[in-house]
Amino acid sequence: MPKKKKVAILYGGRSVEHAVSVNSARNIFEFLDKSKFEPLPIGISKSGQWFLTEGVSKDIQKGQTLGLSLNAGKPTFLLEKSGEKFSVDVLFPVLHGTDGEDGSIQGLIKAMDLPMVGTGVLGSSLSMNKIVAKRLMREAGLPVTDFVTFRYDEKDKISFTALSKKLGLPFMVKAASLGSSVGVAKVKSKKDFAAAVEEAFKYDDEMLAEQYITGREIECAVLGNNPPEASQPGEIVISKNYEFYTFDAKYVDPDAVRIDVPAKLPKSIAEKIRKASVKAYEALHCKDFSRIDLFLDKKGNIYINEINTIPGFTNSSMYPMMWKERGVSFAELITKLLTLAQERYDRGKRIERDFQSSLKF
């Protein structure tokens, strides 16, 4: 019998999306094919400490404190209390938001020289920053909403009048590099504006104001590399009790949304969404898997909102639902992602890291 691969599931993290990460990781731990893989849950506390935990738990600090010995290709984790060491074969980051999807943890894993599920340093950092992502997608000829950006040091110069004239009312205000609708507000009038700006800058040094699209919330799951494949689109139908798809609507209120998978769309529109999703995925250098969030207006125009390089795997998450509709179970999807990570790592070995020259040192 082949030896089981040790899979380190990284979860938690120093992010406002810490709890969402725990819920996602819990499902990945549960559905991982234990006949092929041995899961090693590694929780990162809100203060940034790493722990080996018993299963996936919100009480991360009850685990065993971890240290790390860096040796490219053969890094070892150290249980600080007992001195016991162990290694892993592949890492599966399930870290949403800051330090998880922005390239930070991906850089550490790259230095470890181990296979990793998901997008690498470049694609993660590009996709996480909504401003950079929108500019690159626009450059690639993809449809995005009109937007204006600001730095924190420009905060006192932001004009509601100028923005409403350019973007119309209502418009959205967002922190540049967060997910799960944290730091996001819908501005309908001048009285909403100051609080929206404060909320965005509470979480980031950059913010953007963007055109509000009246239409349908569409999502599309992309899987694989060379070439990637898109699922059929799904739709988030939001209760009229919510102004937009807020954090509470996503994760707290069970009656906030209805999820249609697949979305009820004409074939031509569904295909247009699938092609745009793959193009966006490739434009932002995504790998293995991502979820593309879009808007569809009443005229049939689509707008790409953002890309999630580590989409949620909670019980209400769209990404696994969209692949389940295609006949791929939760367990099969996790196995596929781990296989993609290993294949991509093996292909990367062809890249030379040494250059023979006449330079003397």
Rank of each mutant, 00 (worst) to 15 (best):
E235C: 03
I307W: 10
I9K: 01
V90D: 09
L91E: 00
E235D: 03
A140E: 08
K191H: 04
D113E: 11
K250T: 11
D255I: 04
M128P: 03
E80H: 03
G123L: 12
K324G: 08
A270F: 08
A230C: 12
E139Q: 15
I269F: 01
M172D: 13
S277I: 08
S231L: 10
G168W: 13
S159Q: 07
Q356D: 13
K250C: 12
E352Q: 14
I158L: 00
E139A: 15
S189A: 10
A133R: 01
F361R: 05
I44N: 03
K191T: 07
T335H: 09
T53Q: 02
T149M: 05
T76P: 00
I60D: 01
I213F: 03
A25L: 03
G234H: 07
V121C: 08
V257C: 10
F361Y: 06
Y11V: 05
W50M: 06
D293T: 11
K279H: 09
A276L: 04
G67W: 00
T214S: 12
K336M: 07
Q211V: 12
K191S: 09
L70Y: 01
S268L: 10
K46F: 03
L79I: 14
S357P: 05
K324W: 00
H285Y: 15
C286M: 13
G103I: 05
D102W: 15
V261H: 09
K272V: 11
L294Y: 13
K287Y: 03
L163T: 13
K287I: 02
L40H: 06
E306N: 14
K191D: 09
L208H: 04
K191Q: 13
K188G: 10
L108D: 08
M116T: 01
M137D: 04
D89T: 01
K34L: 14
S268C: 02
L108W: 02
N129W: 09
K174H: 05
D205E: 13
E229R: 15
L333Q: 04
K202C: 06
T149A: 09
L66D: 00
K81A: 15
K110E: 05
N225W: 10
P39V: 02
T76R: 12
